[in-house]
Design a protein around this nucleic acid. Structure first.
Lengths: 191, 191
DNA sequence: GCGGCTATCTTTACATTGTCAAGTTTACAC
DNA sequence: GTGTAAACTTGACAATGTAAAGATAGCCGC
């Protein structure tokens, strides 16, 4: 069914083509019609799979977020201690965006994080990287026999997240990007 | 010259109308034609003052950045010690964006920082907030009789900036925004 | 005062884009 | 086989960015 009337798997093809086009031309130059053309379907075909342009972009965003999480999880894989895992995760966090600054803008540029998390109240607890951090942080407390209040825990985690996320953000800025050895830096910064 | 053929001060009027429209409808819904209409001029009039849409947006960005800097400078005004000033500046940094999340996306969403800083190599040293931080940090070293290598200084400053900037970024995310008392938090996080 | 120069603004035009509506084709259940 | 729904095409429309050409007005040298 490769060249039949029905495409076969247009939905995924649109997402893939979208990622490719965004990597080449940036999100602001992405048009539904170009994505459709890249898949050799008519300009209105995407509307069978996505409500509007935003829904396609959200789908792409989810796809990228999954790849991001894959790298974070790969980074903590096999680390002996929670401390090591947290350091590794922080490095992977910064490295992921430093290696591809476009993804930072794409994921956080409009502050959507991910489409399926779109709501107007507390969702930090559902943000995948934060869940991973919490898991490692609790492991860290246990390993070191520490006992902290919920509030103290929150502060610690936000602190770690802030450093890492802030570094990632700064590391992506044009001009600053190449002026600092991030891979070296985060090792010393993450206490 | 209020209703003459020439507007009088169209350039500034376009910037002001642009800020207003962005605050109301977001950057993604800003169109040159709407801005022109808000100033009661023809849709092509802006081209006499700005090369293209991006140049108008950059001008608006500079305007907002100036207001941002004003608040940072006001925050350190009259602080006794550098440490106090840095804390105050950090709070002002986070507060500015927490109070108006749209500005964070607007200023950093496309990672441009400001138009006049647009170049492809090191410009951290020209980023106004960073200059202010450096000034305060050097004051801090002197006040406490500390002597650090240039590299150690860089790490310290990036660390401070990362925490503050990361907190600002996170504080702006929908859903997380209201779930944390940022004003209380940054006081305890900034060592 | 006057001619001209230039910046400012208008009008017109065009290509790109998001989206809708109506029709066409295909797969699939019954 | 027939109907039904999903997947796709075609055609249309309004909004938008931008270029080109013309109109207007302030200003400068004389």
């Amino acid at each position: 069914m490769a060249d039949s009337y029905h495409h076969g798997n247009l939905r995924q093809a649109l997402i893939d083509a979208g990622i490719k086009l965004i990597n080449e031309n940036g999100e602001e130059n992405l048009s539904l019609r170009k994505v459709a053309a890249a898949c050799k379907v008519s300009h209105a075909a995407p509307y069978a799979h996505f409500k509007d342009k935003e829904e396609l972009i959200d789908a792409i965003k989810n796809n990228v977020t999954e790849r991001f999480m894959d790298e974070l999880e790969a980074a903590i894989e096999g680390r002996a201690t929670a401390d090591e895992a947290i350091i590794a995760m922080g490095k992977a966090y910064v490295t992921f965006f430093h290696r591809n600054p476009d993804y930072y803008v794409f994921l956080f540029g409009k502050q959507n994080i991910t489409a399926h998390l779109k709501m107007n109240k507390e969702y930090k607890n559902d943000y995948p990287p934060f869940l991973l951090l919490r898991r490692m942080y609790l492991k860290h407390l246990k390993e070191n026999g520490l006992d902290k209040s919920y509030e103290e825990q929150e502060i610690d985690m936000v602190k770690i997240w802030s450093i890492v996320h802030g570094m990632a953000s700064i590391a992506c800025m044009k001009g600053i990007r190449s002026s600092i050895d991030w891979n070296d830096l985060d090792e010393r910064i993450l206490v």
